[in-house]
């Protein structure tokens, strides 16, 4: 018995593990991931410390909880991730010929080629889509919270906070659905807003929701702190606003540099702006 045990021990001793893959590559991947997480954490802290640019929380939460394949049924290796840096917008051509304009700090995950019955992509942040018509292959945008089923159309989608966001339809028709199965069909000029799994529909001026693709926004008396939150989200810079009463009207152009945008706001209302490398921009009311 003891002798047999020794033989088994000897056998097990002879077994070695398969050689580990290239560890240098692993080191690089680890450092890249550390850097990426650092970036994400800065964004999140922007939100919690100052403004409620809730959209960015979703990115952190989503990547954390769904670190594998964000598009159900498609293996990670067949997916491309398109991340738009802060302070810029980008155009993305999808494999089916659809065109997307993707806003600053947003992410699109899409496959190399669309296979199967549906064309499914994932969007986090904000994007404007012009979808190529194909009746046989519905185009579906997943956000982690709600889905948008498209029937050849132009529309704007925006996610904010976990599962929340809105969809504005410019042309054609789309169907918005939430996980519990309820959904609505939108007509052009309508907006569906998702709030904790509830959908409400309202009539809007679509230009107000798509003008970011031309790098400006229309302001109708929004308070300055809301605008600051939007700028913080767009440029990926901390903007702390101590003034929540001043209102802004008119067309605000998104310049290449946030400093220029803040200067322009300074021409409209009496504010002071300070900058520190650790806290970012602070806006306060000048008496």
């Amino acid at each position: 018995m003891g002798k047999d045990v020794n033989k088994i021990d000897g056998l097990l001793d002879m077994c070695i593990q398969p050689p580990a893959p290239d560890t240098d590559a692993i080191v690089e991947k680890t450092f890249r991931r550390i850097a990426a997480r650092k970036r994400r954490r800065i964004i999140v802290s922007t939100v919690s410390s100052c403004v409620s640019a809730a959209a960015v929380i979703l990115l952190a939460v989503f990547l954390h909880t769904h670190g594998t394949s964000p598009v159900p049924g498609i293996p990670v290796k067949e997916l491309n991730t398109f991340d738009v840096p802060y302070g810029a917008t980008a155009t993305l051509h999808l494999p089916d010929g659809s065109l997307m304009k993707v806003n600053a700090g947003s992410r699109v995950v899409y496959p190399d080629i669309f296979k199967g019955q549906e064309r499914r992509i994932f969007v986090k942040g904000e994007a404007y889509l012009e979808v190529t018509r194909d009746e046989n292959h519905p185009f579906i945008v997943s956000t982690g919270g709600f889905d948008v089923k498209v029937h050849g159309t132009e529309f704007n989608i925006r996610t904010s906070g976990e599962g929340n966001g809105n969809v504005v339809l410019k042309e054609g028709s789309v169907e918005v659905s939430v996980p519990d199965g309820s959904g609505v069909m939108l007509s052009p000029g309508q907006m569906a807003s998702m709030d904790d799994g509830l959908i409400s529909v309202s009539e809007v001026n679509t230009e107000d929701y798509t003008c970011w693709t031309e790098r400006y926004i229309n302001l109708y008396g929004e308070t300055i702190d809301k605008v600051a939150a939007r700028l913080s989200e767009y440029y990926g810079v901390d903007v702390c606003c101590k003034d929540s009463t001043s209102r802004l009207y008119g067309k605000l152009e998104f310049k290449d540099n946030i400093r220029d945008v803040l200067k322009n706001i300074g021409k409209l209302v009496d504010i002071g702006i300070t900058y520190s490398s650790t806290k970012g921009y602070t806006i306060y009311k000048e008496e």
Binding site: Q17, P18, P19, A20, T23
Partner: peptide, 11 residues
């Protein structure tokens, strides 16, 4: 640290 610890953890 990564280079020395990766193989057993990976396996």
């Amino acid at each position: 640290f990564i280079i020395s610890r990766y193989p057993p953890l990976y396996n």
